[in-house]
Write a protein that binds this DNA or RNA. Sequence first.
DNA 1: CGCGGATAGAAGAAGATGAC
DNA 2: GTCATCTTCTTCTATCCGCG
Length: 294
Amino acid sequence: MKYLTDPLAINAVIPELASHSIVWMDTEVADYKTRHPRLSLVQILTETQESYILDVLDQPKLIDDLIQGVMVNPAIQKVFHNAAYDLRFLGKSAAQSVTCTLKLARLIPYHLLPVSSHSLKSLVLHFFQHDLSKAEQSSDWGYRPLTASQLDYARDDIHYLSQVHAALKLLYQKAHYDPAVDSILEIETEILAIQEEWKQLDSRYQYLKERAKAVMLAQDIKETDIFSLKHRTTEKVPFVELAQLGIPIDFEITLNATIRKSLTPDQLNQLTRTLSVSDVLSFRKANSDDAEVD
DNA sequence: CGCGGATAGAAGAAGATGAC
DNA sequence: GTCATCTTCTTCTATCCGCG
């Protein structure tokens, strides 16, 4: 691990970092609760397992050099967890070739990745049974010198990020089939195998939720360990009144059966109609015995 | 705390089905 | 044919998530 605090040393290492085709990155931020958070550390791991911790606190010039040298270069793939957060400090929309493991994790269906949260901590626990201590996450990253424990945390983060990334890529491949060559028969076999069990569970699940809601309403319980019940208000105004106020209205209204009925064919043709078509999958009604006599 | 994006769930619609 | 019911979909908005 290289912990670099000297601006000259950091500047010197940028070309070396830029020579990699993929790096795993993370940042630590000071004053994150205030209106003006400051970038404190940028951690970078290379595919050769070298980790760099760059101290860039109050070094806007250095941060910009890093953005120009690494972030905007499309030839370097940058992997972050919740990239949107780090990009606020590292080039924003100018950053190129950024991969986000949070987004990747969310693309994997629950049955292949059964975790209650897609935070890096949860993913590390799921894949590697390692409790990534997040105690340092909210520590003071604006104070110098940093503690050994802070630096350990900073290094662990990118190390586990690359491991999680690899595990996620495998699962992603497992989850994604090419529909052009996928087998409908295989899908049908699998869905029939679990359908009855799923129906029973789903029925029970919905039923219990309805009961819970009824109980909480009747007994005026607002919150339990697993449920919360709150009011939700929706206010409406007559459309005609809005129109009469001359408020610019620029959205479409679904042409439903009721409105359609009150329009003459002429009126209907005068309107600018846009049609949207969706494809609907449904189960066919289970055939009775005559189906087999085909 | 702030943000961008995801998510849950309510509401309303289309269309298939079923009872009569 | 009419009407009600069921499934599935889209749309909308408040709320949640994840980062430090």
